[in-house]
Design a protein around this nucleic acid. Structure first.
Lengths: 147, 147
DNA sequence: ATGGGTGCAAAGGTTTTGCACTCCG
DNA sequence: CGGAGTGCAAAACCTTTGCACCCAT
């Protein structure tokens, strides 16, 4: 069962880990709530906040993204474009995952729902004893329009 | 059928793409032949070459790695540790893939043979029309020793 | 011989860090 | 209040680039 992402979740997880609920952390999370399904870099978040005339330092954006990822609220990912990107995580650990597909021509990011990787993870544990807690899968190719 | 990685493969692929076979490119490839199964960064390769008293510039290492990846000889990957890493690719495009598992405690990289992702790729194409040509899957967790 | 390749150093881009100041709990 | 969090600028990285020189073809 998925828990919806709200400011309460943030507050709750911050407190549980003895962190403070600051304006900046709330503002950063809010950007992700306002931009569902996007894969934002630190610079993206910083830019969006400055557009909203929100006063925040770039270093704080980096620190907030790190923390939110650590708390499991955001998921960090590398698309190989030179910067880390973040999106709202699945809140629930055993939920179906979505994977990312990047079109090599138009550079757009597509998503695909799937639970095949769950099966693969169980396989890996059975055969090697490696216990997986997270994963990242990126597929490169050509989207319907570009191929 | 897999083609073994040799200097001949390098020579052949360079010529096919109108590039020159230089000492530096041979030396870089040689590092990977001497270090099978490792995931080397540009700095790693540079360091290993300097240990061997091979005279090469860091920029050239970067350029060679880029080129070798472009030629399909090396595979570029991001483990999220701040730099790109490379390893010898599968030479054959439709061969079984191996995935990477990174232990969050000891930071070691483990590998796992599997062809489940082939199935997933076919699935994706069928359902979304996205044609996949490459992928990267990384699993984070705890290895047998560390959990 | 000639143009691609190299080495060096400088520049570029992303992320981290030191430190004084701020403000949440 | 006190210490975690912030902002700023500097530093730390990784990677790319400009340019003069070199050397495979």
């Amino acid at each position: 069962m998925s828990e919806k992402l709200t400011m309460d979740v943030l507050k709750q997880r911050l407190q549980a880990n003895k962190h403070k609920l600051t304006t900046q952390r709330r503002t950063v999370l809010n950007v992700f709530i306002e931009h569902p399904g996007e894969h934002l870099s630190a610079e993206d978040v910083y830019g969006l906040l400055r557009e909203q005339s929100q006063d925040i330092g770039l270093a704080t954006v980096y620190r907030s993204l790190d923390l939110l990822a650590e708390l499991g609220i955001l998921q960090k990912m590398e698309f190989g474009d030179g910067c880390s990107r973040y999106e709202v995580g699945t809140m629930a650990p055993d939920e179906h995952q979505h994977h990312h597909m990047i079109c090599l021509k138009c550079k757009k990011v597509f998503e695909f729902q799937d639970d095949l990787l769950d099966k693969l993870e169980k396989d890996i544990f059975k055969k090697s004893g490696f216990r997986i807690v997270d994963h990242q899968a990126i597929f490169y190719g050509y989207c319907k329009k570009c191929q």
